[in-house]
Structure formats: structure tokens, C-alpha cells
Amino acid sequence: MQRVNMIMAESPGLITICLLGYLLSAECTVFLDHENANKILNRPKRYNSGKLEEFVQGNLERECMEEKCSFEEAREVFENTERTTEFWKQYVDGDQCESNPCLNGGSCKDDINSYECWCPFGFEGKNCELDVTCNIKNGRCEQFCKNSADNKVVCSCTEGYRLAENQKSCEPAVPFPCGRVSVSQTSKLTRAETVFPDVDYVNSTEAETILDNITQSTQSFNDFTRVVGGEDAKPGQFPWQVVLNGKVDAFCGGSIVNEKWIVTAAHCVETGVKITVVAGEHNIEETEHTEQKRNVIRIIPHHNYNAAINKYNHDIALLELDEPLVLNSYVTPICIADKEYTNIFLKFGSGYVSGWGRVFHKGRSALVLQYLRVPLVDRATCLRSTKFTIYNNMFCAGFHEGGRDSCQGDSGGPHVTEVEGTSFLTGIISWGEECAMKGKYGIYTKVSRYVNWIKEKTKLT
């Protein structure tokens, strides 16, 4: 034993070699072989497995989906700052455009905790909710729209109204504003409101030439003092309507412009014939205590009207009353817009006519005020429907199939267009061939041609 100890002390290297040989010859039971080890760690190889990531292109799944990435790591994937920024906006807080917040056709661009709407022409605001041009839906104005110097929408209202708090709607500024039905039992019968379409306001006024200088022999019209197929109006439903009495009662109609003036057809009036105007009328054979009678003290036909040349060209006249009318729910003026808007309103496509005229061709006159909704007829169809001249200051309205029309005794009465609950004068009943005849239409004086003249002559002093 002493000898062994001496050998170990003198030859430590020998001992180490012996131990190493023993270990190498022993069977290893701690580690699995290569094949079995792979069965336990069965993990798919990654895209760049075996390579240094710093030297390969980034992978979106590896960089940002398996674990949260930084902007720089995302930049490695896209290799483009702009594309990385677009991805980053949604990656950080989701897609803010998912709810489609942009209105009126706006395009949404996502941002971090926010979004941006790219608005089409005519709109602005956070969600493109603000109209900035009158060309689109009248700028959301209830009545009139004008573009300011910086191309912003400025709404306005006709006389007797003021802008509401929203700067879009119009509200009454006087007790009985024009064009409004205020009798409670008839307010439910107000005709369907007309909503502004998209309009090209630059070209809204037709490029028409008034044929002022045409000389033409007097034409022989049949029954051209021209509501057939209409309905009984309720008291106060058309408070701007008046009836004219002269040699015979209810020979023509008219509309209240203001307390002192009536507008009617020029062919209705004769110099030297006494005319009485009755406002607030409903049943011409009954006294309903809503009527107001006034005498006409002055007749002003349009300066281009000449019955000797043509009885229905420039067929418009103004009547001055001896005493002002007292405005109330049964006696209310009709609204008159400017030339541009009167023309736009007419193009809405349908209007209402009213009167006490004959209820059928050569038949009896109506006792109760009649009204009828009539569609506008395109000019080409209008011209083809008659052998008589249709001037540019006239328009056609009615039904091709016949059966409904204005008729004798309705002449001078109103053709009105309702705009968001307020009625505007767009025409004056003038003439036609018979009444409600198939293929024939009622012919009306186009008020847009005469609004400046009306307003100039009827100013209240």
C-alpha cells in the first residue's frame, strides 16, 4: 500500500490518463441519441435557420407576430419608411378606419389613436360632414345658397324668414311668412316636400332668348283662358290664391305678392273693366268669414305684352289694390325667389296649380277651390304637342294621358313649387288646347323671366 501511494504521488498524470480511459469505455446513459432527441424537440425550422439574422431580410411573422416588435424591426421587413409607417399605425392600436367614419364618399386613412378623412370636392370637416359648395344638395341650405369668396357655403332665406341657429334652416321672422300653410287642420295635408338634388348652379339658368321682337298675326285659340281631375282644397291650404270678379264672377285667378299687390295673367284683364279681388276665398257660393274683398285701382301688364300681336306672350300683369290686405292664416303671400332659384325650383319637376275653373272641358265651374299636382314636361315634348308657338318664356306641365289639367277660369292662378315646406311661385296658368285632352298640356308663363320686374313694381313704400 505504501508503494502504491508513492507511485500516485510521483505520477499524477498517469492516474488522470487511467481515469479518462475508464470513462470513455463506459456506456453513456444520461444523453439520448440524435434521433430520439429530435422526437422530443420537434420544432419547425425557421426561415433563416442556421444563418445569422443580421444578414437576412426581415420576416413579418418572425419579427412582429411571434413577439412584439419595434418600429426598427418592422422597418427591416418593409425596407421602406412609408410602408412601415402605414403598417405601424394599425399594428400599434388597430384600424381606426374600420367603422368607416368618413361621410359623403370620403376616404379614410388610419393613424395612431386617430384617423384622417380625405374629402371629395365640396366637403370638409373631420368626417367630411361639412358642405362647402352650393353645387351639392344646395349646400344643405333649406332655401338659398351662395358661395363666399373663400368658396364656403353661405345660406340665406327669402323675405319674412331668418336663418336658424344651425345656419342652414329657415324659420319665420314674421307672423305670416310667405308660402307657408298655417291653418292647423290643413298642415297635415301639406304636399310632399321637395329635397334639393345635386345641381350645376353655374349652368342652372337656361341660355334662352326671349323672342321679344317676333311679330306674329293673332292666333285663334280655343278655350285658351284655361282644375280638371283635381281635388277639393281645404280652407287655408292655398292662402296665396285669390279669385278675380268682373263682368262675371271667378273669371280668373291670381296670387298675393304682398298686402297691396296681386300677380295674374295679362290676358285676364281689360282696361276700363272694374275688377274686384277676393282673398281668403274657399267656396265661392258661401260666406265663410275668411274672405277679404278689395278693388283694383291700377293694372300693370308687362311692358312687352301686346294682345294685338299675341294674347299669351309675356302673359303676366300686376294688380294694385285700393287697401292693403290683412295677412292671416287664410290670406298669405306666395314666396318669389330670384331668377336663378325660381328656375331651379321649376326644374324640380312638379308643381301645384289651383283655381275655381271648370271641372271638365266646357263644363261647370268649381264651387270649392280645386288643386292638382302636375309634372313638368320637357321642352321637346311640349313643342311636338301643339302647332302653336311655345315661346321661351312659357313652359308645359300636365299629363300625356289627359284627364287632369287646369281649365277655363283658372287662368292667372299660381303654379307653385314647394321647397322644404315653403311654396314659391314658378308659373302662372296661361293657356292650353281644350282641357285635359290626351297628348295636350297646360301652358304656363315662366315666372323666372319676370321676377325682377315683379319685385321692382310691387315694392311697398
Score class of each variant (00 low, 15 high):
residue 141 C to F: 00
residue 294 R to D: 00
residue 417 T to H: 02
residue 234 K to F: 10
residue 140 R to F: 07
residue 41 L to Q: 15
residue 221 F to M: 07
residue 370 Q to K: 11
residue 86 E to M: 15
residue 77 V to C: 15
residue 319 L to K: 00
residue 91 Y to T: 03
residue 288 E to I: 09
residue 156 S to L: 07
residue 131 D to P: 11
residue 430 S to F: 03
residue 428 I to C: 01
residue 384 R to D: 14
residue 137 K to V: 12
residue 179 G to D: 01
residue 159 E to V: 07
residue 347 K to C: 02
residue 334 I to Q: 01
residue 176 F to P: 00
residue 212 D to W: 13
residue 78 F to Y: 14
residue 102 C to H: 01
residue 19 L to W: 04
residue 367 L to W: 13
residue 136 I to Q: 13
residue 34 H to R: 10
residue 157 C to W: 01
residue 95 D to Q: 14
residue 423 S to K: 13
residue 440 K to W: 03
residue 427 G to H: 01
residue 207 A to L: 04
residue 186 T to K: 05
residue 176 F to G: 02
residue 86 E to I: 15
residue 89 K to E: 03
residue 257 V to A: 02
residue 285 E to K: 07
residue 336 I to N: 00
residue 127 N to H: 15
residue 112 I to E: 15
residue 148 S to D: 08
residue 452 N to M: 08
residue 261 W to L: 01
residue 75 R to P: 06
residue 222 N to V: 09
residue 238 F to Y: 04
residue 395 F to V: 02
residue 161 Y to C: 00
residue 362 K to F: 09
residue 287 T to E: 11
residue 308 A to M: 09
residue 87 F to S: 15
residue 371 Y to M: 12
residue 117 C to D: 02
residue 49 S to F: 06
residue 241 Q to N: 11
residue 27 E to F: 02
residue 158 T to Q: 11
residue 103 L to Y: 08
residue 311 K to R: 12
residue 337 A to V: 04
residue 129 E to N: 11
residue 289 H to P: 10
residue 270 E to Q: 09
residue 306 N to T: 03
residue 94 G to A: 12
residue 430 S to H: 07
residue 124 E to T: 09
residue 252 C to T: 01
residue 208 E to F: 04
residue 357 G to A: 15
residue 347 K to G: 09
residue 382 C to H: 02
residue 270 E to T: 08
residue 20 L to Q: 01
residue 155 C to H: 00
residue 219 Q to T: 09
residue 354 S to K: 14
residue 211 L to S: 04
residue 201 Y to V: 10
residue 339 K to A: 14
residue 218 T to D: 09
residue 172 P to N: 06
residue 189 L to D: 05
residue 321 L to I: 08
residue 376 L to H: 08
residue 65 M to D: 15
residue 424 F to H: 02
residue 386 T to V: 04
residue 336 I to W: 00
residue 366 A to C: 14
residue 19 L to N: 01
residue 417 T to D: 02
residue 75 R to V: 13
residue 203 N to G: 11
residue 457 K to H: 15
residue 98 E to M: 08
residue 190 T to W: 13
residue 238 F to P: 03
residue 107 S to F: 05
residue 106 G to S: 13
residue 373 R to D: 05
residue 96 Q to Y: 10
residue 267 H to F: 02
residue 159 E to W: 04
residue 247 K to G: 12
residue 457 K to C: 12
residue 98 E to A: 07
residue 122 G to P: 15
residue 182 S to F: 05
residue 81 T to H: 15
residue 47 Y to R: 11
residue 86 E to S: 15
residue 384 R to Y: 13
residue 17 I to S: 01
residue 447 V to Y: 01
residue 217 S to L: 04
residue 388 F to Y: 14
residue 146 K to N: 08
residue 116 E to K: 13
residue 122 G to W: 04
residue 44 P to T: 15
residue 391 Y to C: 15
residue 455 K to T: 13
residue 126 K to D: 13
residue 85 T to C: 05
residue 332 T to H: 09
residue 461 T to E: 11
residue 52 L to M: 15
residue 412 G to T: 12
residue 112 I to C: 14
residue 396 C to Y: 02
residue 250 A to N: 10
residue 320 E to D: 00
residue 178 C to L: 01
residue 442 G to F: 11
residue 455 K to Y: 04
residue 94 G to H: 09
residue 243 V to D: 02
residue 458 T to S: 10
residue 77 V to P: 15
residue 423 S to Y: 07
residue 288 E to T: 05
residue 92 V to F: 06
residue 235 P to C: 03
residue 433 E to M: 09
residue 155 C to N: 00
residue 306 N to W: 03
residue 457 K to E: 13
residue 23 L to A: 04
residue 210 I to N: 03
residue 306 N to A: 08
residue 333 P to Y: 01
residue 256 I to A: 01
residue 313 N to Q: 14
residue 317 A to I: 02
residue 148 S to W: 06
residue 339 K to I: 09
residue 81 T to P: 13
residue 13 G to V: 10
residue 451 V to Q: 03
residue 147 N to L: 10
residue 431 W to Y: 13
residue 313 N to P: 03
residue 228 V to N: 04
residue 279 A to C: 03
residue 415 H to R: 01
residue 19 L to P: 01
residue 286 E to V: 05
residue 364 R to K: 05
residue 62 R to I: 13
residue 91 Y to I: 14
residue 219 Q to H: 09
residue 251 F to E: 07
residue 389 T to R: 10
residue 309 I to G: 08
